[in-house]
Amino acid sequence: MGLLRAVALNTFREAVRDRVFYNLLLFAVLLVGTSLIIGQLAAGQDVKIIKDLGLAASLLFGVGIAVFLGIQLVAREVERRSVHATLAKPVSRPVFLLGKYVGLLLTLGVNITVMAVALFAVLAVYQSVTPAGVQATWTAPALDPRLLIALGLIYVELAVVTGVALLFSTYSSALLSATFTTAIWVAGHFVGDLRTVEQIGASGTTVWVARLVSWVLPNLALFDVKAEVVHGLPVPAGQVVAAVGYGAAYGAAMWLIAVAIFQRRDFK
């Protein structure tokens, strides 16, 4: 446990020292600036748009970090050969990989927490300057606690994307890893379409291939409850628990496959 903690904290420190959290400043500026503009233009829909924008930006910035840091988790260490001194210590490769993964999840956790605070702060300010009569027309309160559910599931999605990036980074270059991970993130949002591909006229081998791919790709649509939260619709607890469980299982599977590959690697 001590080894895992040491590797994870070192990974977190690397992210901090690489000034990864500067993206938060950009996020805050984008959020506040856009909110001010929307406040002038979209009366009645403004709070929904701010929530939608805040959640979408949280996801996009988070995926950017997950891909950018995830692909470097192992690939950069191997390319720069800093892995030689580290793995010559009495630390196993599975623990090293898990520590790296946990360290990046910690980084993403801090990132999304700060984004959540920024989003709630903007919404709180917006609520305080909005007349009560206008607030009464909102389908959900500005400071809706269900936003936390949406943000939590975004975090689980980021954990899955990080797992995919970790897997690629154990055997591929940083550039290829980034390309593959981004492609899988995009494709992961269309898994549902792949499973119903026969409805658009596909048949035979195409259907089987599409189904096979759909079961291998992460079903990232499971983590998307933004529309429900923004429009004040219910989000069943069972759906949230299932999504979290699926994310944890998929992340663990990515780590296990990454370990299997990493164990066989020679560090020349």
Binding site: N10, R80, H84, A85
Partner: peptide
């Protein structure tokens, strides 16, 4: 262990 031409964090 000291690697050849070591690279550290």
């Amino acid at each position: 262990f000291l690697p050849e031409n070591p690279v550290f964090y």
